[in-house]
Design a protein around this nucleic acid. Structure first.
Lengths: 190, 190, 190, 190
DNA sequence: ATCTAACCGAGACGGTACGTCGTGTCTTAGC
DNA sequence: GCTAAGACACGACGTACCGTCTCGGTTAGAT
């Protein structure tokens, strides 16, 4: 009843960490396209089997590595007004993502591999989306959003612009862009 | 004066067509991730070298095949008002793209291969963007868009939402979605 | 003390045998010039990498296959007189080699590839040469060879004629030829 | 009736020479194994077709180039005695061939390609053999060769040793070697 | 104190696709 | 009809990774 106590030698935490670290290093050096399981195993000093035992694909390794790397917690601003909250949220997000080409690699993998796509959405995309939805919901409760407004569409607008710029790299993803987008969204809620 | 008279045996138009056709067939059968140069060559009944001679990567083959397939011409509606034009443009686009997972594969390739990314943007993405810009510009000339509005950001909003839904597949890309997005953009221009 | 305990999955003896067998079959069917690594791998049901892992070139595969096939042991006759020993040795050799065009293919490869040439000489040519040298040395100890005779040159004469006929195929390599060559060598030692 | 007057543009002697020269240069630079039709055509500044039109294989190109290069005429010594003639012939031959690895490449090709083998024998090997046969015949007429001696076997001995050393490169092919071989042959004729 | 089970590294295995090379044939325009 | 140029179908090359497998060896709880 103490839960499932597993038999045999337990998983090596040291190896797990080594693999995630190796994945991030390989990622930083050659980009996502150059990432291979062979390479990660070589760098981590482990057998390939050990990777396959715990992750279904290399994208899952990278996803876990990224989620572990730090910015797991998504801060939800609560400054009392939609414009202020939006600006804060967007600026924080743009600042974080603006210099992270790895996200692009993960998205590419998600587009090619439906199984990973599901994990990527659940563990990453939809959580960020949910955080922004909280901001919107609070604003709606404060009466800042016109009734009948499709909040989900607004979320799509925000993350759509964010990803579109991230993927095409044709326009900056800086704090000023965050402000402008926030202003546009506010205008659209009236 | 007949221009550049080329030496040697001229390029075989029949083979070129066979390759593009084979690429589209392979694409339809197995999806972009399963596409291989070997497979295209096998199906087209040509040598691999012939493919490598004319296209730098398989994504370029696919891109040319798609551009050739039909919807090369982008219709720019001109019905006299921004709401009407936008709704028409978006509905047409959503109708076209909604059933085209190949675009997703091309985007994935663009994310992994910077050289192809450039071609993809030039020959596909930016042309569509330019078409929408025409719609916006006409509206601005009619005074339908508030001065100081960042038109480029509006374009990002439209195509951002479009691509975001295409990539995540979490919300429909139908004509109703087009209407809603058009309404939102119109609201944002006031 | 048990010697070198190897890490990792051990080499598959079954695969090794399958490769050597496949090589001999391909050889028998199409001759040496038509031999390919692809073909051997296909017939052996193994990956090409497995062949490249263990042999530096296809000639080395063939060499090992031949050495394994049977006539590894070189019989050195010892009948008490040079004429008798020579006749026995040559007849045995001519009988063996006369129907083995594969040897010609190996020689061709040795002429084109210096690395293989070294292996071919060490593992094949020089061992046969050494066997004949034993016959000559015994005769010299019995006083059958005139002092001052260059034994190495005699060895060259024997194997020279043998290979020359093997390569040019202008004269038979049968037992009668063995007798005649033996008689000539005996005459040259007086 | 004036014989076969060929129609059209006549064969370009300049191109023929350029091809033979290019073949020899490629041969000197990279050895026989690295020789390719493509390479010869590139260096000669001609189309591949032109080569294929006039020679059945690259080995035939090389053979013609070599035959053209100079030492076409085989000098047959006639000094009045077998020992003297043999020594002269062998020394000349060893001097010529000792530094000619191209011969080895041609032999390799002959071993792999039966069609070329025929040409190589007819135009090269057997002519040299015939020259040596003249020497032997003259000696026989002078009574220097014991009746019943198999002259063809003697020829095999001479050219066998020559080629065997050329192919294996285990012993020198110098003038001293020529003397020793001549002495051995003379001994064998008694 | 064993026994058993799951872990670990190492690395060989059968595959598949890669991108390149050389072959011999063909199809142009030009001489 | 020959030439240079060069595209073509073909097929082998040697390499890189894939995901699986099979070793010897390790590390725990259960017996």
């Amino acid at each position: 009843m103490t839960g499932e106590r597993r038999l045999g030698r337990p998983r090596s935490e040291a190896t797990r960490t080594a693999i995630l670290t190796a994945a991030l290093e390989e990622l930083d050096e050659g980009g996502y396209a150059a990432l291979t399981i062979d390479g990660i195993a070589r760098r981590a000093g482990c057998g390939k089997q050990t990777i396959y035992r715990w992750w279904p694909s290399k994208a899952d390794v990278v996803l876990e590595a990224l989620l572990e790397r730090a910015e797991t917690t998504i801060e939800i601003p609560d400054e009392g007004s939609l414009p202020a909250d939006l600006a804060a949220f967007l600026q924080a997000t743009f600042r974080q993502w603006g210099q992270r080409p790895t996200l692009v690699g993960l998205m590419a993998q998600a587009l090619l591999d439906p199984v990973f796509a599901t994990a990527f959405k659940e563990k990453f995309l939809f959580r960020r989306r949910a955080a922004l939805r909280v901001v919107m919901t609070r604003a709606a409760e404060r009466g800042e959003i016109a009734p009948g407004t499709d909040v989900e569409l607004l979320l799509d607008v925000v993350y759509g612009v964010l990803w579109y710029r991230l993927l095409l790299d044709h326009a900056p993803l800086d704090e000023r862009a965050g402000e402008q987008l926030a202003a546009l969204v506010v205008r659209a809620t009236r």
